[in-house]
Amino acid sequence: MDDPSLRDLRAFVAVVDHATFTDAAIELGVSQASVSRAVARLESSLGVPLLRRTSRSVSLTPAGRTSLVHARAVLDEVDLLRRSLREPATTMRLGYAWAALGRHTAVVQQRWRQEQPDTQLELVHSWSATSGLVDGLVDVAIVRTEVTDPRIESSVVGFENRYLAISSDDPLAQRRFVRLGDLDGRVVAVDPRTGSTRQPLLDVATSTLDVRGVEEWLNVIASGRAVGITAEATKWVHARPGVAYRPVRDADPVAVRLVWWQDSPPPGRAALLQILREAYAR
């Protein structure tokens, strides 16, 4: 069975966006038959029907709805890659996977613009363990876990306190702070790919619930299905109705690291390191 191609994914998304094969073909600049074949190939590759077709309309099957989310994500990543390759050398791409620099984000951007007026600092979101560095999407990246890849060099720029994220109607939300022992018997939502919650923090939990990215993490917490342990930056960047953040008094702080390829540190790395350290020092 062949893997789905980008052409087939684009045809599928275009049909959904335009609700007809004819209009999708016009947007893509191909024939209607070509679009039909592309969608059929994708369905064959995935082994499930994605669309319900009638003489008057096209609608998504349950599998189609799930596939559409991932198809859009794949195409967005490819478009981001193409744009990154077209960017001039006067751009420093800073990757992040979770909450950028929290409350320091705007300060760092403003200082960079003042001190490095000839180079643009572009923040790039990437759902990967190295925040897009190994994927080739960025020049440097912010991570909140230890990177063990020997090809990658890192430097700690600061520390952030840990916070508990809970449903706003949870009894713990009435407290000013919590302790790790308060999580005994709780389900903790964890993003195993990019999250900063690792053992031994999870020793107090009854079980964990794996999630993909901050949006899914916030959704399961707001619904009361789980709680979350996170770095302070999340509180500043991802305020959400129905979710409360409370400091965890006895949890070790999170080290915030800047990472880059050891054999090819980008120009401007030293200047960015200084700005980041000074921002966290305040």
Score class of each variant (00 low, 15 high):
residue 41 R to A: 13
residue 41 R to F: 13
residue 41 R to D: 12
residue 41 R to K: 14
residue 42 L to E: 12
residue 42 L to S: 12
residue 43 E to T: 08
residue 43 E to I: 12
residue 43 E to G: 07
residue 43 E to A: 15
residue 43 E to D: 13
residue 43 E to W: 04
residue 43 E to F: 03
residue 44 S to D: 14
residue 44 S to N: 11
residue 44 S to E: 06
residue 44 S to R: 15
residue 44 S to A: 09
residue 44 S to F: 05
residue 44 S to L: 09
residue 45 S to G: 11
residue 45 S to E: 08
residue 45 S to A: 14
residue 45 S to Q: 04
residue 46 L to T: 06
residue 46 L to P: 01
residue 47 G to R: 09
residue 47 G to Q: 10
residue 49 P to T: 14
residue 49 P to L: 12
residue 49 P to K: 08
residue 49 P to W: 03
residue 49 P to E: 01
residue 49 P to D: 01
residue 49 P to C: 04
residue 50 L to W: 10
residue 50 L to H: 00
residue 50 L to S: 09
residue 50 L to C: 03
residue 50 L to R: 00
residue 50 L to D: 01
residue 51 L to Y: 07
residue 51 L to A: 11
residue 51 L to N: 01
residue 52 R to C: 05
residue 52 R to S: 03
residue 52 R to P: 03
residue 53 R to E: 09
residue 53 R to W: 04
residue 53 R to C: 13
residue 54 T to R: 04
residue 54 T to Q: 09
residue 54 T to L: 10
residue 55 S to K: 11
residue 55 S to M: 11
residue 55 S to A: 13
residue 55 S to T: 09
residue 56 R to L: 09
residue 56 R to S: 06
residue 56 R to V: 07
residue 56 R to D: 02
residue 56 R to C: 00
residue 56 R to T: 13
residue 57 S to P: 00
residue 57 S to A: 14
residue 57 S to I: 00
residue 58 V to D: 03
residue 58 V to R: 01
residue 58 V to T: 14
residue 59 S to W: 05
residue 59 S to R: 09
residue 60 L to M: 01
residue 60 L to R: 13
residue 60 L to F: 08
residue 61 T to M: 02
residue 61 T to Y: 15
residue 61 T to P: 14
residue 61 T to L: 02
residue 62 P to S: 11
residue 62 P to Y: 11
residue 63 A to I: 03
residue 63 A to F: 09
residue 63 A to R: 08
residue 63 A to D: 14
residue 64 G to D: 07
residue 64 G to R: 00
residue 64 G to S: 14
residue 65 R to I: 04
residue 65 R to A: 02
residue 65 R to P: 01
residue 65 R to N: 06
residue 65 R to E: 13
residue 65 R to C: 14
residue 66 T to Y: 05
residue 66 T to Q: 15
residue 66 T to P: 02
residue 66 T to E: 14
residue 66 T to W: 11
residue 66 T to R: 09
residue 66 T to K: 04
residue 66 T to M: 15
residue 67 S to G: 01
residue 67 S to R: 08
residue 67 S to K: 03
residue 67 S to V: 07
residue 67 S to Y: 06
residue 67 S to F: 01
residue 67 S to T: 14
residue 67 S to M: 08
residue 67 S to N: 00
residue 68 L to N: 00
residue 68 L to D: 04
residue 68 L to K: 04
residue 68 L to R: 11
residue 69 V to N: 08
residue 70 H to M: 11
residue 70 H to K: 02
residue 70 H to G: 05
residue 70 H to F: 15
residue 70 H to E: 07
residue 71 A to Y: 01
residue 71 A to H: 10
residue 71 A to L: 12
residue 71 A to S: 13
residue 71 A to E: 15
residue 71 A to G: 08
residue 71 A to M: 13
residue 71 A to I: 12
residue 71 A to P: 04
residue 71 A to K: 02
residue 72 R to Q: 04
residue 73 A to G: 08
residue 73 A to P: 08
residue 73 A to S: 10
residue 73 A to Q: 02
residue 73 A to V: 12
residue 74 V to E: 12
residue 74 V to S: 05
residue 75 L to A: 06
residue 75 L to S: 07
residue 75 L to E: 06
residue 76 D to G: 04
residue 76 D to N: 01
residue 76 D to L: 02
residue 77 E to R: 03
residue 77 E to I: 00
residue 77 E to W: 02
residue 77 E to H: 01
residue 77 E to K: 04
residue 77 E to T: 05
residue 77 E to G: 07
residue 78 V to L: 01
residue 79 D to N: 10
residue 79 D to L: 10
residue 79 D to F: 13
